[in-house]
Design a protein around this nucleic acid. Structure first.
Lengths: 225, 225
DNA sequence: GATTGGTTTTAAGCATTTTTTAAGGAAGGC
DNA sequence: GCCTTCCTTAAAAAATGCTTAAAACCAATC
């Protein structure tokens, strides 16, 4: 995990850099807005998270954040700020930041927030695969052995839910809630029908289905060997 | 883990019951206040948690909650309520409820609240093992020497109960109460049959069973050396 | 506003698996 | 040796999921 820290006060920068490195992160430091912006945009794909000081010589943190957001919608950004009015926080979040933390702060707290954001991004996984099946949730594409497979919305949503939970049981009640957004309904056989659709479209004929049935509980796509 | 659900609207009751059973709970349902109260007081010790609807024909949820609290100070009670004023919530909590949830709710939310309350009582453990047997309750998976073993719901629930009480004797009446339905005939041999199923699926042939029979009392999985 | 094509949902019969019952035989305790 | 308790097996009963067809729904197009 690589983090870019843009912070002009050297002692603070060193403190954060060392702390994060001890935690196993790769950390780059820019001590002014201009080089910060260059690094951020020049190596945007390399970074998993940005830590931006609010007040910077040259280009401001806000500006860097905006430019990052222009290019990449998802990468987490956290502001480090000495300001403490709610308005400033709102301003930062409007610029596209995911979180902000006020100086002085406990290093533990910074770490906790970083972890939360990195985890939530991990959950936003885009590509899934099982056996010969590949799924790209962003592009809305599914292929089997490289051949495109046409799925309807519901089929797609169900497949995504199953693959997102690969290795775990997907209980019927949860599926109904997550994929169908239905509450308090249970005597429906939509799930059975759609599992059937997926199996027809994606299973290799003659082989056991890639979706395992767990009677009385739900379904599971197994972890691959 | 046994839960008593008192709810008069059948579809909702079924939905909750099935959802909880999928999660591995033993669930009893009463569709009116009177039988709810009878079950609650008659088998108070057997239940690990109560889910009470607010508005009930016969005896109200509030009343049931009060009576439960008269007898048992600790067992968690959650109200299901369609009402949405703060006052009602306060009223419910004053009656001794631990939490309340407004209808309609996402099943996951209910589950989260249940888990919180049960965790605070007994350690909600996800992984169990004995000898070469490993159990993951979340993934709904059991393996022996790394090889997956297919268990049905009841087999799974029974194994979980035994492992959860590793080192302790599991009395037959207790097993019936916790794993099967509360109003089960007591002179039945289901337990024997299911113990037999588990032994067949999980014992190493030729070696003594991992489930020890305590004659006249029940069964025990021993603490490991 | 009707028609069409596709998607989603409902419903029902069928097939399978799970759960329960029952009964005879084995083993333990007195 | 006798009584009780447990084990094992087989078969009945119940529950659950599969499959299919048709109905309902929706959105685009003429």
């Amino acid at each position: 995990m690589r983090i870019l820290l843009v912070e002009d006060e050297t002692p603070i920068a060193n403190f954060i850099r060392d702390g994060l490195r001890e935690e196993g992160f790769a950390v780059d430091v820019a001590d002014n807005g201009r080089t910060g912006l260059e690094l951020a945009l020049g190596y945007l794909e390399e970074y998993d998270l940005f830590l931006l000081d609010w007040m910077l010589p040259g280009v401001s943190g806000i500006e860097i954040c905006r430019r990052i957001r222009n290019e990449n919608k998802l990468v987490p950004v956290i502001f480090l700020t000495a300001k403490d009015t709610v308005d400033d926080a709102v301003f930062g979040l409007e610029a596209g930041a995911n979180d902000y933390i006020r100086k002085p702060f406990a290093f533990e707290e910074l770490l906790a927030r970083i972890r939360v954001l990195l985890r939530s991004r991990e959950g936003e996984q885009q590509f899934f695969s099982y056996g010969g099946i590949e799924m790209d949730t962003e592009a809305y594409r599914v292929t089997r052995e490289g051949e495109p497979v046409e799925l309807t919305q519901k089929e797609f949503a169900l497949l995504e839910y199953l693959l997102r939970n690969k290795g775990k049981v997907c209980r019927r009640t949860r599926i109904i809630e997550k994929v169908w957004d239905i509450n308090f309904e249970h005597d429906t056989s939509v799930i059975d029908v759609y599992i059937n659709f997926l199996r027809k479209k994606l299973d290799r004929p003659g082989e056991p289905s890639f979706i395992e049935t767990i009677r009385g509980v739900g379904y599971r796509v197994n972890e691959e060997a």
